[in-house]
Amino acid sequence: MSTSIYQQFTDYIKNETPVALATIIEGPGVGAKLLVARVDGVEKVIGSLGHPELDRVVARDTAGELEAGRTGVRHYGPEGQATPEDLIDTPTVVVFIESFSPAPQLWIFGAVDFTAALGRVAKVLGYRVTVCDAREIFATKRRFPMADEVMVTWPTPMFEKRGSTLGPRDAVCILTHDPKFDVPAVQGALSTSVGYIGVMGSRKTHNKRLERLAEVGVNSPEQLSRLMSPIGLDLGGRTPEETAIAICAEIIARRTGHSATSLKNTDGAIHS
């Protein structure tokens, strides 16, 4: 017995394989499905929308949407016609293409109390959480049960090995306050295309850190503008949990490019 498309779809999602689902939502063949998964960099196409040429064109477009992480509706002819001229006098096949990318990553450097609170809030937001600290007695799964992964490591090897997996949707939070650790962590994070880099510390710690970063050559305006330091929005909170909310709120605001002020004090569309 062959495995159903739904079963294969959920298997891909559960093992964090990028996958997109194309469904005919209007027109001939409504309900038909095509699944495109990217397995080890190679696209795998499962299912059919009822015509080989339609399958070919939709699989191509679905792979593109998956690559970009986009979800949306596209229109075709029943035999895969895609240009407006070809679509005249044919019934329209409306296809909903939904991309499922693996969860965004949050790497937290420093196994401290703030780490546990930040990990919990990040899990609520759907992040895959990795906690890193070089000290074996602090970096334990028992102290951070919410983390998907706890790594006993220095920052540099971590970024060398896995920095290329970080992208604009991902975040790095450096909570160590320890120059031995946070300088290489900042250097490592800046060498990636990660969307958010936050570094914890008082204004005094921040200023000292800037000096140490300058000593290792991190001083260009482009580099420094990527550092959110001191980390977090100014909510006035004190506890690790309140601090975690201030950090996560800043991560969201940086991603959306919104102002992070109260809507009461702004105009215009709320969802844009």
């Binding site: 939502i25 979800t71 509706v73 909903f96 939904e98 969802h271």
Partner: peptide
């Protein structure tokens, strides 16, 4: 969904495919 299906229940799924104007949830 897995739990319901393993109990032999029939399941329907509703997905947002398009939002026009202001909307609280995105397509998907």
């Amino acid at each position: 969904i897995d739990r319901w299906r393993s109990d032999g229940k029939k399941v329907a799924v509703a997905r947002v495919v398009k939002i026009e104007g202001s909307g609280p949830r995105d397509p998907g």
